[in-house]
Design a protein around this nucleic acid. Structure first.
Lengths: 341, 341
DNA sequence: CGGCGGTACTAAAGCGCTTTAGTGAGTTAT
DNA sequence: ATAACTCACTAAAGCGCTTTAGTACCGCCG
C-alpha cells in the first residue's frame, strides 16, 4: 500500500489518522490509492499498537429463559449500534446467568483487554460493579445512577427518570378516585425497583391515602399472575388498581383478573411499564409507561466512547419516561368510590 | 514473564498452547509462574500473529422497535455464550434496520477481520447472504437450510424442524373437528414462514379439508390483530381455528376475538408459536410450539467454531419443535361441527 | 553566505505474541 | 568412539500497524 502511493508506511498512517505533517496533495494521493486498492488498515494491528479494542462491552445477568421476555436489551443494543457502526466500533454482547458470572466476565474482558469500556445495567443496591470496573481500570457507564454515586468518580452514567412515569400513573389513578393502589414489582435488589416503589409509596402518601400492598416478583409472567392472585385473596380492602412494573406481568395479571371474573377496568384498573408492542393490543389496551430505549442506548454508547477516550465522566439525564394512557384505567367501582371521605 | 520463568518467550508460547517440544517440568513451571503473576497472553498480540479474532458475529436485521417483541435473540445469544465463554471466545452482536445494512455489516466485519465467522439467521428465499459470506471468505453457519442448499458447500447449517410443531398443531385441531383453520404468519420472504405455511396447507390437504385463508403480516401485535379482524370480516366460512406464527400475534388476536365477543376456545381455537413466558398466563392459556432456543445457540456456536477452524461444514438437525397443549384449543362450536360430512 | 526554524517526509523501534530455523546437549546406532 | 538422531530450548523474524527520532529540503534573516 505504502509503496503503491510512493510513500513510507508511516506517512500512510499519518494520512489516515489525519495527523499533521503530511502535505494536502500527498494525503489525497494516499487516500485515493487506498480506495483504489480497497485497502483498509488492519484492525488487529491497530489494536495492538494503539492499545485499543474499538469495541464496547455489554453483559447482562439474566437466565436464558427469562431474558426473552424483556424487550429492553435488543432495543438498547440496536440504539447503541446506530452510534457505533459509523465509528467503526462494535459491541460485544454477553448473557450470563447471574451476577457472579457477570463479575467473572468483566474480569476476563479486562484481562484480555477485549473492550474499551462496558455498560453497567440493572444497577443493584450496594452494587459491587462500579467499584470492580474502577479497580480493573475498565472505563464504564452505568444506566441510572448508583446509590453510592460519587464514590466512583471515574464511572459515568446515563439515566432516564422512571419516577416521572410512575408519578404520572399514580396521579392519574388518584384523580380517577382510586384509594387502594397496589404495586407489583421486581426483586428488591434492583435500584430501579426501589425507585419506582418509593415513587409509588410517596404518591400515596402525598395524596393522604393509606399505604397499600406491594408484591415483589422476579419480573416473570408467572409471578405477575401469582402476585395478582395474592392481592385478590384478601377478603377486604382489595385494591381497585394495580401498578405493575412491566407489561408482561400486567398482561398476565389482566388474565388472572379475568379468570376470577373481575372486569378491567370496571372492577380493577391496571397499568404496565415498557409500553411494549402488545400493550396496545390486549383487551382492554394497557396503560403503560414508555421510554426511548434505543435513544438511551445511543447516548450511553456516546458517553462510554468519550469516557474510553479519557474524557472526564459525565452524568446525563434523558427525557423522563412518560405514561401512555389507554383503556385499562378507569374510575373505581361505585362501592369503592362510596367509601371515600 | 518469560524472564521470570527463566525461559525464552518462545518457550512460553509453546507451553501455553501446549505444543510439543517443551519438557513437562518446564511447562509446569511456566504455567505456575503465569498464574503467580496473574499473567495472561495479550489477546491483541495473539490476534495479530495468529490472524484470528477469537470472536464470532451475529447480525440481525430488525427495526429497533420490533426486535424487542421477539424472544428469540436474547435466548439464542445466551445459548451461544454458554458455549463461547469457557473457550475464551466472544460474540459481536449487531442490530441493523434492514438487509442492506446487514450486508454492509458483513462486508465491514470481513474487511476489518473482526470476526472468525458469522451466524446467518432469518433465512430468506433466494437469500443473498450465503453467497456473500462465501465470497468474502467469512466462515458461516445458517440457522435452517437455505433453499439453494448445496450451492454454497462452504456454509454449514444448524436447523430445528418447525414443521413438526405445525403438523402437531394441525392434527390436534383437525382431530378436534375443525374444518376451517386459518393461518396468520410473517412476511413471505422468510423461508421459515414458507415452510410453516406449506406445512399448514398440506395438513389441510391431507385431511381432505378445503383450502383456507392465510394472512401475511410483519410479525407485530398490531398486524396480528389486523389479520384476525380480516379473518372475521367475511360473513360466511369464518375460520373456527387460527394458527398464528408467534405468540405475540396470537395474544393480540385473542384480544381482538374477545373484543368482538368471540370466546376462545368455545367459538374459535387459536395457537401461537415460541411458547413465550406469557403464553402460559393469558386467558385462556395459549397452545403454542416450543423450541430449545438456547440449545440451538449452543450448537450453532459449536458448529461455527468448527467451521472457522477449517473443518468441513456440517448440517445439523436438532430435535423438532413440539406443541405445548393448553386451553386455547377445543372442539369447534356445534353449528360448525354440524356442517361436517 | 551560514545559521535558524519550519515543513514534509523517512527510518526504525515498538506493540506482544507465534513460528521457523537453528543450536547444543544427551542418547542411540554402528 | 564417532556419526546420526532426538529432544528441549533459544534466536530472530514476522504479523501490520503507530510513533518517535531523525533527515532533507526550503525560505528567511542577519
Amino acid at each position: 500500500m505504502a509503496a503503491r502511493a510512493g510513500v513510507s508506511p508511516g506517512a500512510v498512517s499519518f494520512a489516515l489518522n489525519n495527523r499533521p505533517g503530511v502535505a494536502p496533495a500527498t494525503r489525497r494521493r494516499i487516500l485515493d490509492v487506498a480506495t483504489d486498492l480497497g485497502w483498509q488498515p488492519s484492525l488487529r494491528a491497530r489494536s495492538l499498537s494503539r492499545s485499543t479494542s474499538f469495541t464496547l462491552g455489554l453483559v447482562i445477568a439474566r437466565s436464558a429463559t427469562s431474558i426473552g421476555a424483556d424487550p429492553f436489551f435488543p432495543a438498547f443494543v440496536a440504539g447503541m449500534n446506530t452510534m457505533l457502526a459509523p465509528r467503526e466500533r462494535s459491541l460485544l454482547f454477553t448473557v450470563v446467568p447471574d451476577t457472579d458470572a457477570e463479575i467473572a466476565t468483566y474480569r476476563r474482558l479486562a484481562a484480555e483487554q477485549r473492550v474499551d469500556g462496558v455498560i453497567l445495567t440493572d444497577l443493584l443496591a450496594g452494587d459491587p460493579r462500579p467499584r470492580l470496573v474502577a479497580d480493573l481500570g475498565l472505563p464504564a457507564v452505568t444506566l441510572g445512577r448508583p446509590d453510592d454515586a460519587g464514590a466512583h468518580p471515574q464511572v459515568g452514567s446515563v439515566s432516564v427518570d422512571d419516577i416521572g412515569g410512575v408519578r404520572e400513573v399514580m396521579s392519574t389513578l388518584i384523580a380517577q378516585g382510586h384509594r387502594r393502589i397496589a404495586h407489583v414489582t421486581g426483586p428488591r435488589r434492583y435500584l430501579h425497583v426501589r425507585h419506582r416503589r418509593d415513587a409509588w409509596a410517596s404518591a400515596l402518601q402525598e395524596a393522604d391515602l393509606p399505604s397499600a400492598r406491594c408484591v415483589h416478583t422476579d419480573f416473570s409472567a408467572g409471578q405477575g399472575a401469582g402476585a395478582t392472585r395474592r392481592l385478590l385473596s384478601t377478603t377486604r380492602n382489595q385494591p381497585t388498581a394495580i401498578v405493575y412494573t412491566n407489561d408482561v406481568m400486567a398482561i398476565a395479571g389482566l388474565a388472572e383478573l379475568q379468570r376470577r371474573g373481575r372486569s378491567v377496568p370496571d372492577d380493577v384498573s391496571i397499568t404496565g411499564f415498557d409500553d411494549t408492542d402488545l400493550a396496545h393490543h390486549v383487551q382492554p389496551p394497557l396503560t403503560s409507561v414508555r421510554t426511548d430505549v434505543a435513544g438511551w442506548g445511543e447516548r450511553a454508547a456516546t458517553a462510554l466512547l468519550r469516557a474510553a477516550a479519557g474524557e472526564p465522566p459525565q452524568h446525563i439525564e434523558l427525557a423522563p419516561a412518560r405514561m401512555v394512557a389507554r383503556a385499562s384505567v378507569a374510575a373505581p367501582p361505585e362501592t369503592s368510590k362510596g367509601s371515600q371521605p
